[in-house]
Design a protein around this nucleic acid. Structure first.
Lengths: 161, 161
DNA sequence: TATTGTTATACTCTATAACTATA
DNA sequence: TATAGTTATAGAGTATAACAATA
C-alpha cells in the first residue's frame, strides 16, 4: 500500500541530500513526491468507504447522467480496458454500479451508478474533500485556487482538441 | 510502460465526463493525472540516457559530495531497501556508481557516483530539463515559479522536522 | 473487416520475511 | 540485541494477445 521506506527516518538529512543533488528543484521529482504524499492519506480515506483508487474514479464517472461506455471509461481513467473489467466486477457485485447494454450499439455497455452507488459516491467524495482540506491547511485560500488552477491547466491541456 | 488506454481516443468527451462527474475539480485526481502526463515524456527522456525513474534519482543523489547510505537512499527515494539493491546492481554494473563501505560503520555502504556517472547524470538532467520546459510552454515564467513553489511546499512539508 | 467487452497469460513492480555481517 | 545490506518469494498491478458478440 504505502511505499515501504518510512517517511520519518531521516527527515532533516533527506532535505539536505535533496537540495545538494538538485532533485528538490526538478519538477518530475516534485510532482511524483506530491502525488505519493497526498495519495497515501486520500487512498486511506477511500478505502474507509470500501473504494480503491480506480473504483473511486469509475464510480464518480458512473454517477453522470448518461454514464460512459467501458471504452470511454478506460480512456478517461487511463486504465487498460481489460483491467477495467475486474474493477467493474467488484463495483457491480457490491451493487454500486450496473452495466446497461447501449441500445444504439449493442456491443457497448454504459456504466451507471445505482442509487446506493450515488450515496457511497457522495459520502466518499465528502470524506476525500475533508482529507484534502487537511493536506492543504498550510495554504491560503488564494494559494489553493492558484495551485488547483495551474495543475488543471497542466493536467488537461491535452484534452482540449 | 504507458498506461494503456490511448490519450487521444475521446479528448473532448473526456473533458465533458470529467466536469460532469466532479473529478476534474478533485485535487487527488488532478495530481495523479499531472504526474502521468509529465512522467510519460520524462521517463522516455530518461530511458534515452539508459536510466529508469528510480535509477535517475539514485544517480542524482550519488553525485553529492559524501554520498548517502543505502538506508538513507531508500528513505529519500521512498523505495524499499530490498528493491534498491537491484537498482544499484544495475547502476554499478554500468559503472555509474560504486558502493563504498563506510569506515565509521562497516555495516553501511555509501553510494558514490563515478566520473562517468557524473557525466551521465549531467547529460540526463539537461535533457530532462528540456523536456520539462516543453511541457511548461503554456505557462509564463512567473506561473512556472509559483507552480514549483507551491508544489515544493506540498511535497516537502513533512521533511522539515 | 473492425470494434466492444472479456478471458487468459505473462511480465513488472512491490512488500515481507529470513539470512549475513557488523555493531 | 539491534541494524545494514542482501536474497528469495509471494502478491498486486499492468500489458498483450486471442476470443465471442455485434457492427
Amino acid at each position: 500500500m504505502n511505499d515501504a521506506a518510512k517517511r520519518e527516518d531521516f527527515p532533516v538529512e533527506a532535505e539536505r541530500w535533496l537540495r545538494a543533488s538538485g532533485l528538490a528543484d526538478e519538477l518530475g521529482f516534485i510532482v511524483s513526491r506530491v502525488r505519493s504524499e497526498i495519495m497515501i492519506p486520500i487512498e486511506e480515506t477511500m478505502e474507509g468507504h470500501g473504494l480503491k483508487r480506480h473504483a473511486y474514479a469509475v464510480l464518480a464517472l458512473a454517477c453522470t447522467e448518461l454514464g460512459p461506455t467501458q471504452r470511454e471509461l478506460a480512456s478517461i481513467v487511463r486504465l487498460d480496458p481489460s483491467r477495467l473489467v475486474s474493477v467493474l466486477d467488484d463495483l457491480e457485485s457490491e451493487g454500486l454500479v450496473a452495466r446497461r447494454q447501449d441500445p444504439l450499439d449493442r456491443r457497448s455497455r454504459r456504466i451507471q451508478a445505482t442509487d446506493e452507488g450515488r450515496v457511497v459516491r457522495a459520502q466518499a467524495a465528502e470524506a476525500v474533500g475533508a482529507t484534502i482540506d487537511e493536506l492543504l491547511h498550510v495554504f491560503t485560500s488564494g494559494e489553493r485556487r492558484s495551485l488547483v488552477d495551474l495543475l488543471q491547466r497542466l493536467a488537461f491541456c491535452g484534452d482540449k482538441g
